[in-house]
């Protein structure tokens, strides 16, 4: 397969995943920001949405800009200057998809292309001066999440199991690991295991917001069968392999798809070794130790290692 094709497939998946992440963060934030102050409806919710989507630095480059709901929303959804805005993610996903039409099935292409067409409709309405009210916004976010489901599902159901499919899977999971880690890092001070407070605490709704952002509110209760406790939220998102967005689940997948790739090409390499080392580290970790040495430090270290995963993979397969 062309190295460029592999690169397009990998980034197409990453951008789809990122668009989904940003949409989820916006939904969770809207919910939190609507709570009374006493329930944790803190004033800086929109700012932390910027942090967990990696956009704070760029946002604050413009001094005059205040991180309130409307400015953050337009930054996260439509802003051209924000490389991770939903608009740019969908554009980039489609651009990558269009460059590799031959490597995609019609179904997968249509999943991306029809989301893109819908998005242009929204944007046309917006530039025509129609205000994007909450209903419209929710419809738009639902559309973005549906795109992610459709792309994922159609690829799963229709694509040949070969390198094209593996590179897409790798894109999804490397990006997802990054997203989950960012979310953990923004909220890490909330997840510290302090006094065991159950329900009704100020932070309670913050924790559930984190769970909601990764579609794990229900999963949490099935796994732990108890009220939401911060360290268990961290446990779920880092160490539970059966939670599809946990760091460990991401790395189980990365190792798996890299191994299949190595089998097809008949050669293991630096990517496979790096991924296995990452997985081994997560498998050997326990929550207590993570909290003792610092959750923030752990997550930061993970994010760096995950970035390295991306560059090792690129060096081995995507640029020649």
């Amino acid at each position: 397969m062309l190295a460029r094709t592999a690169d397009n497939l990998y980034w197409l998946a990453r951008y789809v995943e990122r668009a989904d992440h940003v949409a989820r963060i916006i939904e969770a934030t809207s919910r939190l920001a609507a709570l009374p102050r006493a329930y944790g409806g803190a004033s800086n919710e929109w700012e932390s949405a910027l942090v967990s989507t990696g956009g704070l630095k760029r946002f604050t480059e413009d001094d005059a800009r205040v991180p309130d709901e409307s400015s953050v929303l337009s930054f996260l959804v439509f802003e051209i200057e924000n490389p991770s805005s939903i608009h740019n993610c969908v554009e980039a996903a489609r651009r990558n998809a269009r460059a590799v039409r031959t490597a995609l099935t019609v179904e997968t292409w249509e999943a991306i292309n029809s989301a893109w067409l819908e998005m242009t409709k929204f944007e046309r309405a917006r530039t025509a001066g129609k205000r994007l009210d909450r209903d419209e916004l929710n419809r738009f976010l639902a559309l973005v999440k549906k795109m992610a489901l459709d792309v994922d599902g159609s690829a799963y159901r229709t694509m040949l199991r070969n390198d094209a499919f593996y590179f897409m899977r790798l894109g999804h999971f490397v990006e997802r690991a990054d997203n989950t880690a960012r979310l953990l890092d923004v909220k890490y001070q909330l997840l510290l295991p302090e006094a065991e407070q159950v329900g009704g605490s100020l932070d309670y709704f913050q924790w559930t917001a984190i769970l909601r952002a990764v579609s794990a509110n229900t999963a949490y209760h099935w796994v732990y069968r108890q009220a939401v406790k911060p360290w268990l939220v961290a446990d779920l998102l880092i160490l539970k392999p059966d939670m599809p967005r946990s760091l460990i689940a991401c790395y189980e997948n990365i190792v798996r798809w890299l191994d299949l790739l190595a089998r097809q090409y008949g050669r293991q390499g630096a990517s496979q070794r790096h991924a296995r080392a990452m997985l081994a580290k997560l498998q050997g970790a326990d929550l207590k130790a993570i909290f003792q040495s610092g959750l923030h430090e752990f997550v930061e270290g993970f994010t760096d290692d995950n970035d390295r995963m991306g560059s090792v993979l690129a060096e081995q397969y995507l640029v020649h």
Partner: peptide, 15 residues
Amino acid sequence: DLFVRDNVVYMRTTT
């Protein structure tokens, strides 16, 4: 995606 070496054309692939 293509390059020429010793008057032969190659494409850059993942392998």
